[in-house]
Structure formats: C-alpha cells, structure tokens
Design a binder for these strands. Sequence first.
RNA 1: GGCCCUAUCGUCUAACGGUUUAGGACGGUACCCUCUCAAGGUACAAAUAGGGGUUCGAUUCCCCUUAGGGCUACCA
Length: 476
Amino acid sequence: MSVRVRFAPSPTGYLHIGGARTALFNWLFARKHKGTFILRVEDTDRTRSTQEALDAIYHGMEWLGLDWDEGPKADGNYGPYLQTERLDIYKKHIDLLLQEGKAYYCVCTPEELAHKRKEAEKKKEAPKYDQSCRTLSPDEFEKMKAEGKPYVVRFKMPQGRKIVVADMVRGDVEFNTDLLDDFVIMKSDGFPTYNFAAVVDDHLMEISHIIRGDDHLSNTPRQIVLYEAFGWDLPKFAHIPMILGKDKARMSKRHGATSVIVYRDMGYLPEAMLNYIARLGWGHKDDEIFSRDELIEKFSLDGVTKSPAVFDMDKLNWLNGQYIRTALPERIFDLCEPLLIEAYKTKDLEYMKRVVGLFLDRLVVIPDIVPLTEYFFKEDFPVDPKVEEKYLKTEQAPRILSALKDRLSKLDNFTKDEIEKVFKGLAEEMGVKLGVVIHPCRAALTGRKESPGMYDVVEVLGKERVIDRLARYVKA
RNA sequence: GGCCCUAUCGUCUAACGGUUUAGGACGGUACCCUCUCAAGGUACAAAUAGGGGUUCGAUUCCCCUUAGGGCUACCA
C-alpha cells in the first residue's frame, strides 16, 4: 500500500507553528516513504475562512519548502482539494446515511440546545444532545422544512460500543460510544462539519496515514464510527503532541509570533526554522542539526514524542546562528543587502559585502546587521559616552591616535597585513601592550567598546574614513 | 462535571527492565583563545512530579494522587 498523507489546514488564520510542524511531519513521512503529500483545505467554516489566510498558508509552506504533490495549485486525481468545492460529494454521502437510517434531521434551534446544555450542567449531567429529533417523523419534518425552518443532520451514535483507536504514537486508546452524542454532520447552511468532511475526504482521497495534532485524538472515535457506518477501512492514525508557549499553555499571540511567516520577516532562515520545529516532538539520538535530506532519512513516527513541547526562542536563535555561519556568505549578503540599503541609503555593493563579511559570526538573525554596522555607513555615528571617557579623553589618546594616523596615512597598501604591522610596530616602539593602541582606535573609529577585529575594521573602512575619524581626536 | 492524553535537568530531548556516577543540545556559570564583542574550545551546576505495587532488578510495566493539556460547538 502506498503512503498518502495530507495536511488539512483550515484557512481561518496564518500558518502557525503547530500547523507548520504538522505539515512538516506529514511531508517528511511522505518523502521518506516515497509517498504522496497532499494539501487539502478545510474551509467549511464560511464565517471564518478567508482567501488571505489561505494565501498565507501557501506562503508559509512555500517558505519552508514543503511542496505538495496534490492539492490546490498542484495536480492530482482526487480533487477538488478545497472542501467548499466538494459539497455535492458530502451531500451524496449524507443522503446515504439518511437513507440507511444512520442519520436523521434535527430541527432543534441553537437556542434550545444552549438552554438544554445549561440545564444539564446545572444538574451535573453530561451535556449531551437528548436525541429528541430522532423520533421526528418524515411528515413532520417535511412540513417544518416547507415552512422554512432551519435544520441540520445528525449522526445516530451507536450505543454500547467500545472504539479503539490504534494510534501509532500512543498505542491503543479506548473510548465508549455511550459518552458520545449524536453529533451534527451537516450544518444548517448545508456545509458539512469537520468530523464528517474529514472522514469522507480521507477515504475518497485514499489517505493511508492521518498524522495530526493530538487535539484531534478525542475526535477520532467519532470519525471511526463514521468509517464503520460507511463500511470503509480505517486509515492509520498518528497523533503528535502539541506545541505550547513558555507558560505551557496552548500557543497564542501572547507568546509572541505564532505565524511561521513572521519568522521569515524577523530574519530567520527557513532551514533553521525547519530544523527547529522538526525537533519539537521528535528526536533522533543526540543529533541536533539536520539538513533537509537528513530529516527525510532519519524521520520516523517511532521517534515522535508523546508529551507536548514548549517553543523555545533561545534554541531557535542558536540554530539560526549555526545556519548563518554555515550558509554561503553570498546568500547572507543577499539577505542583508536590502536592509542596509533601506537603513543607510548606500549603494556601494562591494563595500556592503565586505562589511557584512565581518559580521557573519555575530548575526543571530539577519536584521541584526543594521544596528551592528552603523559606523560603517554613517559619519555621524553615535559615540558611547563611557567609551569616550575611558579611551578618548585620556592623556595619551591624542598622541597615540596621532601616531596611528601618521603611520596609516603613509601606507600604500591599505591591507590587513600592513595595518597589523603598523599597530604592532607602534605598540612595540611605545613599549605598551597592543590593547593600549587598539582601544582608543576602536573608540575613535566606531564609538563603541566592541567591534570586529581592529585590523579588519580599519581595512574595510578604508584609508580615507580612518584618517578622517582619527583626526577628530588628534587636535582636540 | 464527564471522557481522553501527557509527566526525565529551566527548555528541547536520549535511555525502548540491567552496559547509568541518567547521555546530548539550548540557556546559565567558570576558564581558554584574544585588541574588544562575537564565534570556537574546555569544564561545572542542573532532571526521572509524589506514593504504592510487579520484578532478583525499575526512568522504563501496573495502580492511585497531583499537575498540565485536549475533547465535550451548526470551529476545525
């Protein structure tokens, strides 16, 4: 049997971290087993689904490189892949259950149901539907329907059944159908509900493994009972743990960015993000860094954890730094370039490239490049008062900087090696440690107490800027 | 309330009854490197939620408690 898995988001918001991780696990499973990865859009909630959200989901997946073999914007013989375009299919299957007496019309209003629920809660009873419409006669129903009364279709929950979910991550999980009520399978607007549409589609699309968040585990018995009603074979189930925020509560806006695409905008590399979310709820030995291919090779449902995982920015940051450091410098430069142009209105690409090269080890996220390099692009860069006090207002600073200025200005080859010789030579002649020369110089050139290696900074800034900046502190 | 899931360092995880003084990673601390800051290297601190069983032996199996989470919608 070939592997066919799907990611089935509902377009009611951006692709969030948890959704992306679910998509990734499905994608990895499909790629690993040379199967098919399907994208199916569960847009049956007409009030909350939007085209913008759908586009955001596409973008998020594209950014992470999670390409789908079947689905919207792709081919496939099992379409359409948007549930709202499959209404006739659901209608047909609803009718089938109706005909076989496995489902029935219900004319209870939401208000009545809410009232009954409240009553049940008061009496500390299970808030279950009382099945009052099970006895509604066809004639009565037709009459009400003719009067324009809204109605839904409910599934007749079989009683006294034990349903076992054979979960690939959690093992067998038992449920008793006596605790489940006659849930709605078709809403009054004629759209199917999630539990119904998912079952019909998963069957018709020949999904072999359902890999989804474990918030769906409790829904699974409802779905299994539908499979049985239709006489369909069950797919395999694998419920993966949820991703939580720092306070161990379900991820929400409170926890910062929950949308995957925001991480792109914040300067994270997609491979770092992919690597990070792969490690949330999954592990392989002591490995931490996985390329896309290694992920495919090593991924297995056996390695999936059962307990929820907390999203940790610190570790994501570390991983992003790792990936920045091993990426082609050219690529990092390409990512930095627009930010630098925007911030400093510069257009000297060659210069920018050399500047960025000095900060590759210092970037956690791409936008860090802007504040880090201000003194490379502005002559009126800020000078830290503490630095000025400590290194520039000393008695010997003007003398040292003056000597440096003289010697550097005489350099024909303004290269790192030659520059280093100047610094070392001066320190030696003065009989002082290198730092005594370097610190005031760094202060004068950058206004900061930290920077990349001094010789690199001097070389990249170039003779003209260096001489000019040193001169500011020579006369004073 | 009912049902279900989960429980190893602060966090992500390894261990699939014994090879364990419970391993790795992030973060933290210290040191090394060094012109500073990073990066890199080394070291240290840090966990099996609690209580009962089963077993010659439990992180690992079972039960209870506790704590988190999920479902209980005409949301998915």
